[in-house]
Amino acid sequence: MKHPLLPLGITIGLFVAMAAFGGVRYQGFLSLQVFLNLLIDNAFLCVVAVGMTFVILSGGIDLSVGAVIALTTMISAALLQAGWNAWAVMLAVLAIGAAFGALQGFLIQRFGLAPFIVTLAGMFLARGCCYLISTESIPITDATYTAIAQARIPAGLDASLTVGAAIAIVIVLAGMRIAHATEFGRTVYAIGGGESAARLMGLPVAATRVRVYLLSGFTAALAGIVMTFYMLSGYSLHAVGLELDAIAAVVIGGTLLAGGVGYVAGTLFGVLILGIIQTLIAFDGTLSSWWTRIVVGVLLLLFCLLQRLFEARSRRTA
């Protein structure tokens, strides 16, 4: 690929174009709060998509994240109901999410299983565990959780952010740093680029692969916490199909599904594009919600075709 930043540029350009379109068409669209709301309403998607970016960069896939988010909300709600301390609950669910991801990573690495099928079984398992806890929605009334849910961080111009959105921003920044300035990040890119080459270079392929899924499980649990702030309830049907949205955000963000090429910053814009599609449809008011799915599908198609085009061209110039 001649310009490695080109796909990222296209993604950002698309986002700007959609924002401009909304600004011209609908009154009140171009306000800071509308844009911050993109982040507020999609904070959990943003957090989980950062973890997914690493998985896809390494050439794998994680289908269990939506179910892990639901399980996190369920465990949080159940533990809070049992009278646990709020901070202890958060630590516990983060540890459970990371352990769940690490276990999947271990199965994939140690026994050479397909990531797709392992995380699929993980998805069944996590959703099933949700139902075991309760089939009903459990409300959260804990004082710390409600205080965090209602807290607003002023962002200037009368606009504000939620704690969840702030967490999302921190995770994106941390993700960028991990991807580009650590040994772990470079190893992830190397595995995605070519596993045997990475192994021959003496990189810790096995440990890194397990850690990639651990990271994905951790971000899924963190996204689950952000979702409990947003919803103030635990429910086994939270985040159904969210793994698809996360994968779509990563792909639209310019990361190659074959692995090895992509940016965490691109994923942020992928999430924002998914968000702005929903906002545009909401502002329009006449389009039904299922148009979101169709538009996301079309965007996925365009970006995948674009990726193929880039790959074909880079092969010719190589």
């Binding site: 994968i247 979101t292 799915r293 169709i294 996301v296 599908g297 079309v298 996925l300 198609l301």
Partner: peptide, 13 residues
């Protein structure tokens, strides 16, 4: 995946 995401939207449409 593309048809999986868009297909249900088409059916709802």
């Amino acid at each position: 995946l593309i048809l999986m995401v868009a297909g249900r939207g088409v059916a709802q449409l």
